[in-house]
Amino acid sequence: MKKILPILFMTIGLSLSAQIGIKTESPKAKLDVNGDTNLRGKIAVLNTTDNSLFEGNNSQVLVSQGDGKPPVWKALRIPEYEANQYYLIFNNSFSDNTGVKFTAAEESTITSRAATFTKGTAYSNFSRFKKITALSQPINVYSTQSKTYFQFETVVQANFPGAGNTDTSIDYACGIFVDDKLVNLRQRNLKASTSDNTFITHNQIGIIENLSKGQHTVSVACSRLKSYNTDNITLGIGINVATNIDSFITQSSLKVDVYEVPEVFNTITN
């Protein structure tokens, strides 16, 4: 009887109390345990839809939904990475259909291409280069060990007259820049042909290694370098200058892939 009465009184006291504290006289929740907790049974979360108790599935964890909301069961997925191996961490593609145009008066004043077109040269040193607006975009790098690949594609056109002299042509160049520093550059020549308004497809691939961690800006800029036997001819890069093609056909695209040796592992829940 002596043992039963204290237990009975404690049970009555707990049932009347709004908060229960174990090893604390000032509980801060309905149940406040000041010490280690060893669970030997089930943990369940109330499903407010049908008032049922859900114990979760194998390997799920309880995840908070924020203040005042009940926790939910979530599956925790951690990607498996091998040491010193590169993985595709960031990839995106961008497009532009406004392009850039150059008249004969807008030729670059660059006279020594070999000296100027050097990797790492600042964009400000490239005379009369124009950026293709929508291809200037941010990219993210999360590791000190990375390889970033760029694939640029566009259409170049000049409004050459039909049956033109094949010596009639225009030199042009396009560069890929990261943070306004040259990463890759390609020069080509567009020649007149027996048909008017000649156009060609321009493809360009660049790579840069070990960008610093953080956000960077990638951009593409092009220029008209030199004209041969041309008068009043307009050059369009990423934009049509005649009606035999349109801006849909000439639009530019830039694909960016960042491969990294992971240093930060972000877990994913679903």
Rank of each mutant, 00 (worst) to 15 (best):
residue 107 E to G: 10
residue 255 K to R: 07
residue 86 Y to F: 11
residue 34 N to V: 05
residue 258 V to P: 06
residue 71 P to Q: 05
residue 235 L to N: 06
residue 76 L to P: 06
residue 118 T to F: 08
residue 171 D to C: 13
residue 179 D to W: 06
residue 111 T to N: 12
residue 201 T to C: 02
residue 237 I to V: 02
residue 229 N to Q: 11
residue 50 D to V: 01
residue 153 E to H: 02
residue 28 K to L: 09
residue 241 V to L: 00
residue 216 H to K: 03
residue 8 L to D: 14
residue 243 T to Y: 03
residue 71 P to K: 03
residue 49 T to R: 10
residue 250 T to R: 03
residue 62 L to S: 11
residue 119 K to A: 14
residue 19 Q to G: 05
residue 229 N to P: 05
residue 118 T to P: 03
residue 67 D to G: 09
residue 6 P to C: 04
residue 147 K to H: 09
residue 27 P to C: 05
residue 5 L to Q: 11
residue 191 K to M: 00
residue 251 Q to M: 07
residue 106 E to Y: 07
residue 256 V to T: 01
residue 76 L to D: 06
residue 40 R to I: 12
residue 182 L to R: 12
residue 110 I to M: 07
residue 37 T to L: 14
residue 219 S to K: 06
residue 53 L to R: 08
residue 151 Q to P: 00
residue 154 T to G: 00
residue 246 D to F: 01
residue 177 F to N: 08
residue 14 L to Q: 10
residue 23 K to S: 14
residue 204 Q to R: 09
residue 77 R to T: 15
residue 253 S to V: 10
residue 109 T to I: 11
residue 65 Q to P: 09
residue 86 Y to W: 04
residue 73 W to L: 12
residue 36 D to I: 11
residue 203 N to L: 11
residue 194 T to S: 13
residue 38 N to Q: 15
residue 68 G to E: 10
residue 61 V to K: 04
residue 179 D to A: 02
residue 55 E to C: 07
residue 150 F to N: 04
residue 259 Y to K: 05
residue 188 R to W: 15
residue 67 D to H: 11
residue 178 V to Q: 03
residue 23 K to A: 13
residue 70 P to D: 15
residue 60 Q to Y: 01
residue 194 T to H: 04
residue 35 G to D: 11
residue 270 N to F: 08
residue 245 I to W: 03
residue 16 L to Q: 08
residue 27 P to S: 05
residue 198 T to K: 00
residue 17 S to N: 04
residue 6 P to E: 07
residue 99 G to Q: 10
residue 39 L to F: 03
residue 34 N to Y: 06
residue 85 Q to T: 13
residue 84 N to Y: 10
residue 195 S to I: 07
residue 38 N to Y: 15
residue 47 N to W: 09
residue 218 V to A: 04
residue 64 S to A: 08
residue 59 S to H: 09
residue 54 F to S: 15
residue 266 N to G: 02
residue 264 V to D: 05
residue 12 I to K: 06
residue 173 A to K: 04
residue 155 V to G: 02
residue 27 P to E: 04
residue 199 F to S: 02
residue 248 F to K: 14
residue 80 E to F: 15
residue 132 I to E: 06
residue 91 N to R: 07
residue 212 S to E: 13
residue 71 P to N: 08
residue 123 Y to W: 09
residue 236 G to N: 06
residue 166 T to C: 00
residue 84 N to R: 07
residue 240 N to S: 06
residue 16 L to C: 02
residue 75 A to K: 13
residue 266 N to F: 02
residue 162 G to F: 02
residue 142 Y to N: 15
residue 8 L to I: 14
residue 41 G to I: 02
residue 254 L to V: 00
residue 2 K to Y: 12
residue 42 K to N: 14
residue 137 Q to D: 08
residue 212 S to T: 09
residue 217 T to C: 12
residue 160 F to G: 00
residue 35 G to K: 09
residue 28 K to Q: 13
residue 247 S to W: 01
residue 165 N to S: 03
residue 119 K to R: 14
residue 142 Y to P: 09
residue 239 I to F: 11
residue 120 G to L: 05
residue 244 N to G: 04
residue 106 E to A: 09
residue 115 A to T: 05
residue 74 K to D: 10
residue 213 K to R: 14
residue 148 T to D: 09
residue 161 P to D: 06
residue 203 N to M: 05
residue 196 D to A: 14
residue 255 K to Q: 10
residue 148 T to E: 11
